[in-house]
């Protein structure tokens, strides 16, 4: 199939960017979206133009490195990561607009590549359980009821891609936050730091300049791992509880 691509090109963090139009021909339906961009890049290189920069690593939907806003939808029209999106989801002749994640807490580095280190700093603020190596008790000493274990696992599936932020009209990272807080709060090991964790993480979230959540739910619809909106409820509850001191 033949496609028209409008791609955000931006030379660097301090440059202004703009949408540039490219045409690609003979794209196979079996290509992944990123392979389609690989093809474009090979053509650009052949023409002596700089290829489009975009992030990807595992290309199997697990590392969370990739992520593009495709015609207004984070990771495109299917519920999956950009690397697992295939061209059969598009039709011949389609015009596709490709933009980076937009959030002030995710500054653009170049073209479609953004800096998501704010997520790392949120985790640094408390997204962990403090246990030094070697200090762990026997693994089966604390049984975890199946429902809690399952919910913890569901939340732990977050791959930190940032699509939730990209999709949220407020550029809020509450789904990412909610996923981490829920993962750790459901487990007995996570209890001692529960209040401190949520307070620090929310503080950091705001300090990074993410917007507040107004419960819109677009995040959850864009999340490639299907993290449900109710994890934000768990986060809110933990914060409310810790506000009591």
């Amino acid at each position: 199939m033949n496609l028209t691509l409008k791609i955000w090109r931006q030379a660097g963090p301090r440059h202004t960017g703009e949408l540039t139009t490219y045409k690609v021909q003979d794209i196979s339906e079996d290509m992944s979206f990123l392979e389609m961009l690989d093809v474009l890049n090979e053509e650009l290189i052949a023409k002596g133009e700089e290829p489009v920069a975009f992030d990807s690593d595992c290309r199997e939907g697990i590392c969370g490195m990739c992520g593009l806003m495709i015609s207004g939808e984070a990771h495109g029209p299917e519920r999956t990561t950009t690397c697992q999106l295939h061209m059969r989801s598009f039709s011949d002749g389609e015009v596709i607009t490709i933009e980076p994640w937009r959030a002030n807490a995710f500054p653009v580095i170049k073209d479609l590549v953004v800096d998501r280190s704010s997520f790392d700093r949120i985790i640094q603020a408390g997204g962990y359980i403090s246990v030094n190596t070697g200090a762990a008790p026997e693994a089966n000493a604390a049984p975890v009821p199946k429902p809690n274990a399952d919910r913890a696992f569901m939340a732990a599936e977050c791959i930190g891609c940032g699509a939730c932020v990209a999709a949220c009209p407020n550029a809020s990272a509450m789904l990412f936050m909610g996923a981490k807080v829920t993962h750790l709060s459901e487990l007995p090991q996570g209890q001692p730091e529960r209040s401190a964790r949520v307070l620090s993480m929310v503080d950091q979230h705001d300090a990074e300049g993410f917007g507040g959540c107004t419960n819109v739910g677009a995040c959850s619809r864009a999340c490639p791992k299907g993290i449900p909106q109710d994890v934000i409820s768990t986060l809110n509850k933990d914060l409310r509880t810790s506000l009591r001191g």
């Binding site: 409008k6 955000w8 949408l19 806003m69 015609s71 207004g72 607009t97 933009e99 937009r102 959030a103 002030n104 807490a105 009209p169 407020n170 550029a171 809020s172 300049g209 993410f210 917007g211 507040g212 107004t214």
Partner: peptide
């Protein structure tokens, strides 16, 4: 705050 959190808007 939401306005500040996304100063560059999406084209699409």
């Amino acid at each position: 705050r939401a306005g500040n959190a996304r100063r560059t808007k999406y084209a699409a």
